[in-house]
Amino acid sequence: MSASNIEELSNFQLDALREIGNIGAGNAATALATLLSDRVNMSVPILNIIDIKDVAHILGGPENPVVGILMTMSRDINGIIMLVFEEKFLNVVIRTLLNKDIDGLNNLSELDRSVFMEVGNIMASNYLNALSQMTGLEIQITPPDLCADMAGAIMSVPASIFGMTGDKVLIIQEDFIGEERITSHLIMIPNLKSLNTILKKLGA
């Protein structure tokens, strides 16, 4: 059955989305582990459907500084995919790859920004590869775009896209656990037509 907004998804459909989230995030974690030359475990992904007005609260409060990496999906699936990293995560990445610390999120160098965009790109690509293999759908993504700012301001982008069709946002939250527990959030937002395409391909 086609859903006309996120709130109408059945439990079975949510389970199907959770399962692709799980497999996709597994791929993304493997990619991250390769990149960091570290064992990276991951938590069971949490599929959150939350009120638009509460989106910023899951990321440590609306004014918490975070980095968002945004890519646009096209071909068989249209929408956006975004990774949100907190400062601790970014520091682990930079320390591992460049052997230095970052000097706060408002002082990122061009190199720091490139590294984060590439990490976002690799994780999103691995995530979508899993989805693509399971569904046979072809998905292309644009080069990544980065924004370091307040969590609430960054989340206004997915919130406004979800806001066109409903009052809820669908977020897959994933903890990647290496030497330290580092949390990242992967937010995949297919448009409603694409969401229904995915569910149909999964037989849900």
Binding site: I52, K53, V55, E63, M150, A151, G152, M155, S156, G163
Partner: peptide, 22 residues
């Protein structure tokens, strides 16, 4: 909050956090 409004009088302070594209 997002998609919300409030009215204040006297010494009230209204605050909205982290406007992005909103």
């Amino acid at each position: 909050g997002i998609a919300d409004m409030k009215i204040g009088v006297g010494d009230d302070i209204l605050i909205t956090y982290a406007l992005g594209s909103c």
